[in-house]
């Protein structure tokens, strides 16, 4: 990465799209629709290879289960896992003050995802990536107030997207499926697109 901000509208749009994709993958296990997408789109397939034989439902089911088990082992539990949440990685606990901070950011930027139904911590990496996608997706504001948006995005990034390096290292070393190894790898690079 060259350290520059993604100034053009297309670049912002692409970065937002990338963050949304990553957010979805960090959030929960893949489902058949998502597997289908990752298999069909050649660019997506190149980054996130899933060897699914869609002509064989049994193999598909086994693959999905394997991915689910790996996701569970890495992020859900029940033991030896690390929830990909800033509180856990920064303070060794759930719901530290970084959660409160994320709530304030969500309020400030008008993020309207439905994650606050209670089942995902607000400082979960998936939410944090999606909030950045939301910020980058404010196309009109970026056109009218580019400096303020840049400052806001950089501040947000520094506060809530600069913590994940140890998590990504661990996922890369512990993942048993290529999907999640690759997720960590791509996320590490993607986080560098928006400089703090």
């Amino acid at each position: 990465m060259n350290g520059g901000f993604c100034w053009s509208a297309d670049e912002r749009r692409a970065t937002a799209g990338l963050y949304r994709l990553l957010a979805r993958l960090w959030l929960r296990e893949v489902d058949p629709t998502l597997v289908d997408l990752l298999n069909r789109d050649p660019i997506l397939a190149a980054f996130f290879p899933i060897s699914c034989d869609t002509s064989s439902p049994l193999i598909d089911a086994a693959m999905l289960e394997m991915l689910s088990v790996d996701f569970c082992r890495l992020f859900v539990g029940p033991r030896g896992h690390r929830i990909p949440s800033q509180s856990v990685w920064q303070h060794g606990m759930l719901e530290s003050e970084t959660t409160v901070s994320m709530r304030q950011w969500i309020d400030l930027v008008g993020y309207a995802s439905r994650v606050d139904s209670g089942n995902v911590p607000h400082d979960h990496l998936a939410v944090q990536l999606d909030v950045m996608a939301h910020i980058l997706g404010q196309h009109d504001l970026w056109e009218s107030h580019p400096e303020e948006l840049e400052s806001l995005a950089a501040t947000y990034h520094a506060a809530h997207l600069s913590w994940a390096s140890p998590l990504l290292d661990e996922v890369e070393s512990r993942a048993e499926t290529s999907l999640y190894r690759q997720l960590a790898h791509v996320t590490r690079d993607a986080l560098r697109l928006v400089p703090a």
Partner: peptide
């Protein structure tokens, strides 16, 4: 939609109009 996250319970924020969902500059 701008969000990639899946549907869950309808939060108050989810019911906001597009204007209200913009960044509060």
């Amino acid at each position: 939609s701008e969000s990639a996250l899946p549907p869950g319970g309808e939060s108050p924020a989810a019911q906001l109009s597009p204007q209200q969902q913009a960044i509060n500059l």
